[in-house]
Design a protein around this nucleic acid. Structure first.
Length: 108
DNA sequence: CCGGTGACGCGCG
DNA sequence: GCGCGCGCCACCG
């Protein structure tokens, strides 16, 4: 696969926490390649999905990013809620409360 | 090569 | 706090 680094970063996101596309891009060394992160996750096969917690990645506003197929958005939100992440009336999760804050020094 | 297209982000008003 | 416009960047026809 092509985006190994991206998947490696996403695998580090703990259950019940979320990261943003920009954050993942940065940690994966893609700089301002936030869009590439979305592209990488969109290309995950079903098998890979079981090993990469793609649902823990939200946009900078703490919202599930809109897709071509809206049903997958519900799936993502459902998975997050099942692990404790809460969404407000506007469909936003507080990055303040649920955002993943890895420590650079200890790499997590 | 060129232009269109995203699971994006940020600065402005 | 919100929408909008624009910048970004890999992909694809």
């Amino acid at each position: 696969m092509k985006y190994t680094e991206v998947y490696a970063v996403v695998r580090r996101i703990p259950r019940g926490r979320v990261a943003t596309y920009g954050q993942v891009a940065d940690l994966a060394g893609l700089g301002r390649g936030a869009r590439q992160v979305g592209y990488a996750l969109a290309g995950l096969s079903e098998e890979q999905s079981e090993q990469v917690p793609w649902h823990r990645v939200l946009n900078a506003q703490g919202r599930v990013s809109p897709r071509a197929e809206p049903v997958t958005e519900d799936t993502q939100r459902g998975l997050l809620e099942s692990e404790g992440v809460q969404f407000d009336d506007a469909g936003r999760a507080s990055l303040e409360r649920f955002g993943w804050r890895p420590r650079a020094a200890r790499r997590q």
